[in-house]
Amino acid sequence: MNRFGYTRAGSVAEAIQAFAAHPDARFIAGGTNLVDLMKYDVETPDHLVDITRLPLDQVEDGTDGALRVGALVGNADLAYDRRVQERFPLLASALLAGASPQLRNMATTGGNLLQRTRCHYFYDPATPCNKREPGTGCPAIQGVNRNHAILGTSERCIATHPSDLCVALAALEATVLVTGPNGDRRIPFAEFHRLPDDRPEIDTTLAPGELITAVEIPAADFGAHHTYLKLRDRHSYAFALVSVAAGLAMDGGRIVRARLALGGVAHKPWRDPAAEALLSGQPATDDSFRKAADHLLSGAVPRSGNGFKIALARRAIVRALRQAAAGTPQSQTDKRIQ
């Protein structure tokens, strides 16, 4: 690791100030991704601002059944929170599909949103990477790209966003609350992460020095009609090749409203309101599910090693919608996929 200074912030204002006082500072909380990237010299901050003592660690009820999750609430604490288990089981399921129990004990809600891609080239400073060093090129496009994106890529970057939590938050239409040198902002989840286009080094729409303070999740009315289906190379403790978060508002056998988000396939959790609209008013049948899947994947571009993801994603979407319609969400313990 490079050498860096350290400040333990006692308040949000102090954290913002300490960050601004250094040219290349980073906020640190759980550290599960940042410390790892620092060990690879991918991140080389001159200063760390420790935000773990800030009062942002509460889960609170908001208005109209919404939940306000402080940025420092741990992934495990959130997954096992009674309100999350009862009212937002899709969120709990996605959290428990990610990482390991140790990492979930360390990782925070805000930090999960700010995870960087696990692209091998991004992680290896011996190789070029437009995300790590803008303008140097993307070896993944012609190289090892089995884990890479099939949707929303650019000629500069085909990296994926690694989070499971974020896929659920996209489907739940959460809002990210941030504060910074220019005051407070609310960012709709769909606008929080960005596509790589010609600036793959920028993952989110956060301005420099802005700090996530909370995530607000509006009430979900899917009842038991939800699922988080994650497909990966191991049964546990691996990033998604493809994951699907689905929530359906049902009226008998008919779909009233659908939410559908994909993980492992793009630079951000992938949603397409038009694909969701195709399901509204339709019978909950494989035929309806396939039409939505085809629409979601209509712009998919295969690379040399990840073409399989298109067929895998199509089948995963159909399977997830079947699980959601039947009210039999995927277990994150019993790995059999029904």
Partner: peptide, 12 residues
């Protein structure tokens, strides 16, 4: 709580 000590900065 169980954690990975390799990713934990002692100062924190």
């Amino acid at each position: 709580k169980r954690v990975n000590s390799c990713l934990t900065l002692a100062v924190m």
